[in-house]
């Protein structure tokens, strides 16, 4: 690995000015489970690595059923699924946090890091999209907010500009009679990259689905919101037939490639199956 300078920023302002001064030559270090590998293998280069784990806003989270969850960008995955209140309020998030790598990875890796790595196959992003989360970004011009489904722009790339960093991910308060789920298909039992990932969130009202959201991974250059399939759910009964039709619509929004993890046709098939299963589990959790 090429050597670099290391700086542990103590505040957001310090991180922003370090990143603004060095631009592309500076890289952010959160859990390190992606960036250290990428620097070692020459996939990304840095003259300066800015460790953000000493910044309080980035390493803490706050959950209040009335105002929602503010999840610091570098909070490690294990803290999410070990907090029973957070896991119960945002089950799709806990599902994803529990299957990103193994325990060793979950001790360090964060949801914010998963977002900023911006892999098309990122496990947490479909869950974040389904849950309607937004990214809180700090930069030289102050704070701004971007919906998660607009954060990634192409494989490995996102909307962060020079000097900007992801501070936290904001989740709306858990709605009554709502439920969510994330699942993926991998050929192994654990420890693999998704062939396809699907996240679903549903809110029930008066015996039917009031609204729903479906997020997909590994079927396009970025994780994405299956818009048509999501809209279709409103007003429908929480039935196998509804979920099957939503799966069909989700397939239409997918544009997968063929690669070592699977051919495009197979991925399209998986989109239908996983969307249906994610919705069924979300509905079960919503008490439908």
């Amino acid at each position: 690995m090429k050597d670099f300078e290391y700086a542990a920023a103590a505040t957001l302002d310090e991180a922003v000015s370090l990143l603004a001064a060095r631009g592309e030559r500076a890289k952010i270090l959160a859990g390190g489970t992606d960036i250290i590998v990428q620097l070692r293998e020459g996939l990304r280069e840095a003259d300066l690595v800015v460790d953000v784990k000493k910044i309080p806003e980035i390493m803490t989270y706050r959950f209040d059923p009335a105002s929602g969850l503010s999840l610091g960008a570098a909070v490690p995955c294990y803290r999410i699924y070990e907090d029973g209140d957070v896991a119960a309020a945002y089950p799709a998030l806990a599902d994803a946090a529990r299957i990103i790598g193994g325990w060793q990875i979950q001790s360090r890796a964060s949801i914010g890091g998963n977002l900023c790595n911006s892999s098309p196959a990122a496990d947490s992003i479909p869950a974040l999209i389904a849950l309607g989360a937004a990214c809180k970004i700090a930069g030289p011009e102050g704070m701004r907010s971007v919906p998660v489904e607009q954060f990634c722009t192409s494989p490995g790339k996102n909307v962060l500009r020079r000097g900007e960093l992801l501070v936290s991910i904001q989740f709306p308060p858990p709605a009554a009679k709502s439920g969510s789920h994330y699942l993926r298909f991998i050929p192994r039992n654990e420890m693999d990259i998704a062939v396809v990932g699907a996240g679903a969130w549903l809110r029930m009202q008066d015996g039917v689905i009031a609204e729903g959201r479906i997020g997909l991974a590994a079927v396009a250059p970025t994780p994405k919101l299956a818009e048509q399939a999501s809209r279709f759910l409103a007003g429908k009964p929480a039935s196998e037939e509804t979920f099957r039709q939503a799966g069909e619509l989700a397939r239409q929004s997918a544009s997968p490639i063929s690669d070592m993890r699977g051919p495009a046709q197979y991925r399209l098939h998986l989109v239908g199956v996983l969307t249906r299963r994610a919705l069924a589990k979300a509905a079960e959790r919503a008490g439908a």
Binding site: G32, I36, V37, D51, Y78, S107
Partner: peptide, 15 residues
């Protein structure tokens, strides 16, 4: 690392 299992190849010495 602080009681949690980690892959030490994915942690910098300075951390």
């Amino acid at each position: 690392f602080d009681g949690l299992p980690v892959d030490s190849c994915l942690v910098l010495g300075v951390e």
